Simulated assay, not measured.
Amino acid sequence: MTSRIRLIAVVAVLCCAVIAAAVYALLGTGRTASTRTSSHQTSPAAGSGGPKPSAPAKPSASGTWVPTNPAIADVCRSKLPGQAQDTLALIAKGGPYPYRTDGVVFENRESRLPRHAGGYYHEYTVVTPGSGDRGTRRIVTGTAGEQYWTADHYSTFQEIDSHC
């Protein structure tokens, strides 16, 4: 009789795991806007609605910039440090880059950026004056043209608005 109870318990646990996985899949990454705008975030998230489908950041019909994901805070390109603007210029030209690891695939393991297939994102070093190594600042780009800034080695991101 005890082996029958164990079997029922195992089946119940497996059913719960399947249900939890289904709910997780239906809700996407399991993160909400409030999770993304943790205490690490340097500015509030743009907009209060749910995330939009990921698409390249582009001007709207009115000519204003539209973020690809309003759950991620944005920053004006002109407000970035000069070194970040230099990195963006190098990216636009296709290099050459100061570090051999620039342009490698960014895996987005923590899913802080919108989810995409592997190889979608690439990372580039932003030179940090006085740092003896690559430092913590990076630009991450998406295949569709979106660009993200992180000053804290991928803990938080801001989408770069190139129109201001």
Results as ranks from 00 to 15, higher is better:
2 T>R: 15
10 V>Y: 10
11 V>F: 00
11 V>D: 00
12 A>R: 04
13 V>Y: 03
13 V>L: 12
15 C>N: 10
16 C>D: 11
16 C>H: 07
17 A>Q: 12
18 V>I: 14
20 A>T: 07
22 A>N: 08
22 A>H: 04
22 A>L: 11
23 V>N: 03
24 Y>G: 05
24 Y>H: 11
24 Y>M: 12
25 A>P: 02
26 L>R: 14
26 L>V: 09
28 G>C: 12
29 T>M: 13
29 T>C: 06
30 G>D: 14
31 R>L: 15
33 A>M: 14
36 R>E: 12
37 T>K: 09
39 S>R: 10
40 H>N: 11
42 T>D: 08
42 T>C: 04
43 S>L: 05
44 P>G: 12
45 A>D: 06
45 A>P: 15
46 A>W: 06
47 G>M: 01
47 G>K: 01
49 G>T: 05
53 P>W: 00
53 P>I: 02
55 A>N: 04
55 A>G: 07
58 K>H: 13
61 A>Y: 02
64 T>F: 13
70 P>F: 06
70 P>V: 02
72 I>H: 08
72 I>V: 15
73 A>F: 02
75 V>G: 05
75 V>N: 04
76 C>Y: 07
77 R>I: 10
79 K>F: 09
80 L>R: 00
83 Q>S: 07
84 A>L: 03
86 D>E: 10
87 T>Q: 04
90 L>K: 14
90 L>E: 09
91 I>A: 00
95 G>F: 11
96 P>M: 07
99 Y>R: 14
100 R>E: 10
102 D>Q: 02
102 D>E: 08
103 G>M: 06
103 G>I: 06
104 V>E: 14
105 V>W: 09
106 F>Q: 09
106 F>V: 07
106 F>P: 03
107 E>Y: 08
108 N>I: 13
108 N>D: 14
109 R>A: 15
113 L>D: 03
114 P>M: 08
114 P>A: 08
115 R>T: 15
116 H>C: 08
118 G>F: 14
120 Y>M: 09
121 Y>W: 12
125 T>L: 01
125 T>D: 00
126 V>G: 01
128 T>K: 12
129 P>V: 09
131 S>R: 13
131 S>Q: 13
131 S>K: 13
132 G>F: 09
132 G>L: 13
133 D>T: 13
133 D>M: 07
133 D>L: 08
133 D>C: 05
136 T>N: 15
137 R>L: 03
139 I>T: 01
139 I>P: 00
139 I>Y: 01
140 V>T: 05
140 V>F: 04
142 G>N: 05
143 T>W: 09
143 T>K: 15
143 T>A: 15
144 A>L: 01
144 A>F: 01
145 G>C: 11
145 G>V: 05
146 E>M: 00
146 E>N: 08
149 W>Y: 14
150 T>R: 02
154 Y>F: 13
155 S>G: 04
156 T>D: 05
157 F>M: 06
157 F>T: 03
157 F>L: 06
157 F>H: 01
160 I>G: 03
162 S>P: 15
162 S>W: 07
163 H>I: 02
